[in-house]
Design a protein around this nucleic acid. Structure first.
Lengths: 209, 209
DNA sequence: TAGATTGTTAATCGATTAACAATC
DNA sequence: TAGATTGTTAATCGATTAACAATC
């Protein structure tokens, strides 16, 4: 018996649902697929089908129990079982990212940061930061599944190669560089340009009406 | 005569193509849709159709002229006509973002940053930073089309309302908060959770084989 | 010529939406 | 009951892929 892998689209929507549902006032007990859909600008049947995939159903007339739905989405997205990660490049974006991981519980367990610093120190959020030379030794002691890249464009490929050389099989690329990885490694790149392009087209469409 | 609006998907792919094409060594004169596709993991017909939409064609046997293709994609994405923007929240992510805008020429003209600072200063990249009180006056003097939100979650809605009150009609939300905007305002939110969920599912799929 | 490529038309696939029955 | 909702089946739509002709 194999469950079909969830679609990329569904995986993108679920965290958005989650953010919205969590943003509701604490007094909210129930949330219907219909309301969720209209708040986020999706079709109601789409949301209903999505929710059907990840939970065991709501109550007619009432909708879903908010806390149960949060739990079910988090369960589906594996937010409860931690995935270990290290980040290369500790400044700016990575700090803001650690904020995010500490505040939202996404199941990402960020263990350490590595950068050009010569001495071990800690960020305000308690993330230990080591010199990049120590990456290899560190990865031998801990089982790391995701390597996050947050260095400037020019050094991104080098950082990527280094992480892979340490035995890491999954790269999350937050730099604006194009990266090449061997076929046994999973790569997910974020691209600000895509999001911006979409926004600008929406603006253009509005002003042309 | 109205040209149909480009699809969301196409808009997401074009910046990815661009990043890759630009990353090629300077000596590369031609690039074929076929090679572009296999380098990025897309189907070749898909890429060929995309390119057909934004350029006036390649040469059989040779493919596209690299520089022409870069120019055509940038033209299509309006990277040449500047869109003005201000950013609320100047730290971490915003600094890394300004790096991005200065290095890549995406057509976003980031004019100023606003935060809680009491005195006017400049970032290392030359972005002037003002106290948040001055936002309103600033927007009266300059025509700003995009307001970028890079403040912590708890203050994101407030920042958003403030930008809208200043007459800005487009919001780019880089915070992990859910935002509500009136219907005349365009909102684009980025969600790290979506990208991370996708990566984790890929890892899961790999390890289960 | 042979091979690599473009570009187009038709087929497929998957995601979204419409319609509607069920029910609390 | 009436209305708001879930959940399902069928229809539609759009995006991707397959097949193939054209050509440098």
């Amino acid at each position: 018996m194999k469950t079909k892998a969830p679609s990329e689209r569904l995986l993108a929507r679920l965290p958005i649902y989650l953010t919205y549902i969590k943003s509701l006032p604490d007094s909210t007990v129930n949330i219907s697929a219909t309301k969720l859909a209209s708040a986020l600008g999706y079709g109601d049947v789409l949301v209903r089908k999505d929710l059907a995939k990840i939970s065991d159903g709501g109550r007619r007339k009432l909708g879903y129990v908010r806390q149960d739905l949060i739990r079910d989405i988090e369960l589906f997205l594996d937010y409860n079982s931690a995935t270990t990660a290290v980040i290369v490049g500790v400044d700016r974006i990575s700090l803001s990212l650690t904020d995010y991981f500490y505040l939202e519980h996404t199941g990402l367990n960020l263990l350490a940061g590595f950068d050009l610093s010569s001495s071990i120190h800690e960020t305000e959020k308690g993330l230990p930061v080591y010199a990049i030379d120590q990456l290899d030794a560190y990865c031998n002691n801990y089982d790391i599944s995701i390597g996050i890249i947050a260095v400037p464009k020019a050094r991104a490929q080098e950082a990527c190669d280094r992480l892979i050389a340490c035995g890491i099989h999954a790269i999350w690329n937050l730099s604006p560089a194009h990266l090449t990885v061997p076929s046994h490694v999973v790569l997910q790149s974020t691209n600000w340009g895509s999001s911006l392009a979409s926004l600008r087209m929406q603006i253009k469409a509005r002003t042309q009406i």
